[in-house]
Every structure is written in C-alpha cells, then in structure tokens.
Amino acid sequence: MNRKLLSFVLRRLGHTAIVLVGVIIVVFTLVHLVPGDPVRVALGTRYTPEAYAALREASGLDRPLIVQFFSYIGNALTGDLGVSFRSGNPVTLVLLERLPATLSLAAAGIIIALLISFPLGLYAALHEGKALDGVIRAVSQFGVSVPDFWMGLMLITFFSVTLGWLPPSGYVPLTEDPLGWASHVLMPAFTVGVVAGSIMTRYIRSAVLDVVGSSYIRTAKSKGIKHRTVVMRHIVRNALVPVVTIGGIQMATMLGGLIVVEVVFAWPGLGRLVYDAVLSRDYAVIQGAVLLIAGMFLLINLLVDLLYAVVDPRIRVS
C-alpha cells in the first residue's frame, strides 16, 4: 500500500512538472502576444526615443522573442524566474513576499466557508422540504449572488465606521502579531468565506440528499441503528467525496488571488500583484505568478485525490 501510494504521488508529481512546463510555454506566448509595451508603460508619457531604446536594451526586451524564450525556460528550469521589470527585484522574492498574505487569507476563508456550509448543508438536507431548508437555500442563493466588493464595503461601513470594532483595512503578518492578524483578516476572510460557503452549502446539501436516498441508508435505518450514528457514520462519510472536491476547488481559487477582496481591504495578496503586473506588462512577474498559481492548483488537486482515499477506503490510488 505504502509503496503504491509513494509511486502514485511520484508519478503525479512528474505529471505536475510536465504540466508546468506546458504552462510556461503557453503563458510566455500569451503575454507576449497581448498588445502593450512594458517599456512605454514604465517611461510614462514624457520621454525621448533615446530613453526608450536605452531601457529596452537594458531590460533585454530588444532581443528576438525566441532568444528571450529559451533564456527564460533555461533559467526557470534552474529555479530562476527572472527579475521584475517594474521593481527590479527577483520574481521569486516578489512572489514569496506576497504568499503569506494570500495563504493566510485563503486558509481563514476556507475555514469560515466550512464552518458555514457544513452544518447548514447537512441540516438542510436532513430536513428537506421543511421551512428552514427553504430559508437555507434562499440564504445560500443570496450568498452566491451578492457581489463581494459590495459585501466588503458594507462590512467595513458597519464594523469599522459605525461600531469601530475592526480595522477597515490592512495586513499584519500572523507571525508578528497573531491577534492583530486575526482582527485584520476577519472581514476579508468572511467576505471570501460567505461566497465559497454558499456554493459549498448547496453542494453539501445535494451530496447528502443523494446519500440519504440510497438503499444502504434505508437498510441501516431499518436495522435500528441510532439516527445519530446513521448520520455521522453513513451519511456524512459517504457525502464527503464531493465535498472534498468542491472544497479543493474553492481553496485553489482563493490561492490564485482574490483581486476584488484584496482591493477592497487593501490586502497585499497575489491577486493585486498579478493585476498590477498585467497592467504594466511585467512579463516575468506574470509568468512567475501564473506558474506559482498553477503549481498550487495542481498540488491541491493531488491532495484532494489523496484525501478521497482517506475519506472513502473503497477508492484506491492507482
């Protein structure tokens, strides 16, 4: 089993590497196909043709595209993702500096989403058709459709301006000041969590409903097993597979950066970095960030696949 698991993980990591090389090729081609010239953006509106030529040469953008491509690939394979055109800093550093904020917001967001969706989804399914089921379905529909920037602004207005309980914006690293971090992350994480939680509530509800209707649950009930045991051991356990899937997708989406929430709460995550990089055509940063996000996506997919085997032993990794 363990050896099988190990070879599975290694094989998947191998696939991941191949996919990432593909991602580099596609992203490199795409960002260079998009119109817009980083040199022009950097120089602003007033400059001489000589200044334009000088910056193009200094940044290596005057080399033929194919030369730039192979030098990028070569460096990327050795772990060097190049230098940010805007700031002049190594891309690896630029990305790593943003990662803590993104990771901590995604983690807090997914926890809030689970705290919301699990009890609500389970309750709604077990009381299908009752009044509260209707309420939960309506509320989750609202949660899916409410624009996140609007909810963020409403939270700020209420909790920061009116009540003065929470800081309206900003970020404190968890490692420096856990309480400060928590007070700053609460509103953005809630905004993110409500949207993800609403989607997950609906998934959990229908996953549980599927299981509830199956014949083995009827058998279990008719055997006289206690209701609580039926719910926890049979229903929840069997409904977990789709829940893990959707949870993984939500988590991966959050790790890719949450531009709107980051803008509203001035949160220094990957989303705003990518957005700024795209606007200024900072090729190296865009490429590096997409690579990182794709890598995290693939990693989470791998974890989800491994979790399948944990929550449902009938699924074998192979």
Partner: peptide, 15 residues
C-alpha cells in the same frame, strides 16, 4: 499556523 486562525480579536488596540 494557518490551520488554526486566532479566534480572539483585540478590539481595544485595533478599533
């Protein structure tokens, strides 16, 4: 640490 986000919120210092 991300597995256990802090629950307490220091309102005095941040509000």
């Amino acid at each position: 640490a991300a597995c256990s986000p802090g629950e307490g919120v220091d309102l005095e210092n941040n509000g």
